[in-house]
Amino acid sequence: MKPPPLSYSRPHSLDEALDLLAEHGDEARPLAGGQSLVPMLNHRLSRPGLLIDIGAIAQLQRMERTESGWLIGATVTQRRLERDGTGGCDLLRLAVPFIGHRQIRARGTVGGSIAHADPAAELPAVALTLDATMVAAGPDGEREIDAASFFVGPYMNSLAEGELLSHVVFGEVPPTARCSFREFARRKGDFAVAGVAAAVATDDGSVTDARLTAFAVGSNPVRLSAAEGVLAGRSIDSALADAAEAAAAEIEPWDDIHGSAQYRRQLIATLTKRALQDVAP
């Protein structure tokens, strides 16, 4: 389990990184924290001719509040979010501890996790729930991609050739919204067997804004729009069972050694119910 032969580079600016990407095309692969990529190299499931280590590019390490939300640079580590806080982004705060273990979060990055687009990963689900904007840097400048169109398949994103994920802007939720992050994994720190992220706002007991995302139950994290629809205008308590049933029905899970598709539907129903109980006023 040793990486295949490869070259390594470490640019100091985004422009240098983009130049290398342009020059080496398909052969090149950005290396952020490497917590998914290096295991893939060790398994020889990935064979880039050139690794572009983006870890020393200061521009990618920004973390700041902007008008449109909480901006996090691609190479900000998950540990930094855990240690320095998530700037009031409650869903992110709840989700981060579920990412692997401390040792993984120490190196793993926000951009790396999102660009890797593992269907069972936490941050893509948070991004989808918060209608995040992914900002891609390319030869022609920056391009915004909304979360819903960023994840296009298991381990596949919609970045174009020559583009790098520069940063992510996590959107705001209404001030009254409450968040929950529920994940079922076999062991602490394992990838989810199923998970639900929720941000729900209510006014006088009625749901005014419901965002529910299921992950690890299909090729991508998916907004539970049917369940969100069920909740609209109702009290969480009264809609709980219907929302859970709708959520279980609208996903397209698959079988693996940890459970059948049917089991994952049961899990999503359970987790949806529990997440909604968490956010009930």
Binding site: R186, R187, K188, G189, D190, F191, I257, H258
Partner: peptide, 27 residues
């Protein structure tokens, strides 16, 4: 509760180490 070495009908092993769930201190 956790550990299972699975094979499919072709005899291909289905359990990689990440799916072979040696209990941690949390379990």
């Amino acid at each position: 509760l956790y550990e299972d070495l699975c094979f499919n009908d072709l005899g291909q092993p289905q359990t990689a180490f990440m799916d072979y769930l040696v209990p941690s201190a949390m379990e």
